[in-house]
Design a protein around this nucleic acid. Structure first.
Lengths: 233, 233
DNA sequence: CGGTACGTTGAGTCATATCAACCATAGTGG
DNA sequence: CCACTATGGTTGATATGACTCAACGTACCG
């Protein structure tokens, strides 16, 4: 039996990679391991829906998740992505509100579900954990604030350039230099906050100016500094 | 001597109004009161600048503060406001990053400065405080996320209508029904994320349709449901 | 083989930005 | 006290970025 494939221990995952879990006491680690539920999700599955009451949060063991809000006319706005090591759903758990986002798997994923009570107990009883979780939340808040400014002030072209840079930084490239995250045109438009057609036109403009190379959903960044110039960063 | 005027005790302020400080131990309260510095700020003063290293956070005793980011071309984007009972600057303290916003007084204010160490100690040592602060941050994060969706999906007209509703809910009205917060057209445009001229035109459109009444900076909402319809809420 | 989801392109329209001129007000310095 | 300047507000004309609508191509899938 392949150890890696069936090893769902947190030791080989979150406890090692995430600063959040580094300072846990032994009994706290035990508690998490005993109470977590690990599940596999196929591309397209919904982990939770906007409006749902959460019974816990999720820790991403592998895969990629998109987190979005649905606007009044049904259009989705992607807020962020989560990948290995990230945690999702904790906001609603902490504030004890219904989920303000929907969470959908875009690359087959394995998630661990950890019950509400454990999270709240950790925040209450482990100061270092509380500080780390606060840091994480504050970082997200800072990013959200910056994105508000971007979306309010930059053109669609600038935002698309910026998003491409972000995706490259966050998810990296494969051996051929192609962005590791693969998104539909519509998904791109739901990040940037524009129409699908606009994304298509801008992508082909970027291509014709040799900023990028495209082949279906495969995008390769050729001129990162050029894109940064367009994005004003 | 008027007790109220010179009473800078937290007992009559944050300890009473803010759930964050409700569950503090007596020695924690003492520590805050002994180490805080209370200062008066005139309209227009800057409390801290984007990029500053923070030595603590501020608790708003009175007045109104605007919190904004400066975009690459110098245009400001107002992220939120703070008023009595709110705390500001804690994000940067917790994440130990330079301030990602500038904070400017728009209604004469009294602020209490509380050093970094005290905040971090409270998070570490008082579980209830940690949970409350997490809740606060998560609430802000949820609001930021919603604002991203709004700004990405709604028209300028819809956003302006929504902002007017928000300002009314958050700051209330005076006896004549006039919004208690008074903003320049430019400030309104820096919330909505648009040009000043657009705000002017839309305000007079709202006026001509009897949604609002305007007299310089004084705005009175006449038809809240109507505005909500425009804002899609 | 037809269906469904995704991608592309073109044409027309509209919301919003930009530019420019002008007015009102208040504060400043000589 | 007045001219001077800065700031905020308003309006009109014009430009344009981005959306919408519509048609069509492409690819995969049962």
């Amino acid at each position: 039996m392949d150890d890696n494939l069936f090893d769902t221990s947190c030791e080989s995952c979150a406890f090692r990679t995430h600063s959040l879990f580094r300072n846990l006491e032994e009994h706290e680690r035990q508690e998490i391991m005993l109470n977590k539920i690990t599940e596999t999700y196929k591309r397209g599955s919904i982990v939770y829906l906007q409006g749902n009451r959460m019974k816990g949060f999720y820790c991403v063991r592998s895969g990629i998740i998109k987190i979005y809000q649905t606007g009044f006319d049904g259009k989705e706005q992607i807020i962020r992505f989560a990948k290995v090591g990230d945690i999702i759903g904790y906001r609603s758990v902490v504030s004890n509100e219904p989920a303000c986002t929907t969470t959908e798997v875009i690359d087959d994923a394995v998630l661990c579900h950890i019950p509400t009570e454990i999270l709240l107990n950790l925040v209450k009883n482990n100061g270092n954990f509380a500080v780390e979780l606060m840091k994480l939340t504050c970082k997200e808040l800072g990013e959200a604030n910056s994105y508000i400014t971007d979306i309010a002030q930059k053109t669609v072209k600038g935002r698309l350039a910026e998003i491409l840079i972000h995706l490259d930084d966050e998810f990296g490239e494969d051996v051929q230099g192609i962005l590791s995250i693969s998104l539909t045109r519509e998904e791109l438009s739901n990040i940037v906050g524009t129409a699908t057609e606009s994304i298509i036109r801008l992508l082909s403009e970027f291509k014709s100016r040799n900023y990028i190379e495209i082949n279906g959903r495969k995008i390769k960044i050729l001129d990162k500094p050029g894109l940064k110039r367009i994005a004003n960063i």
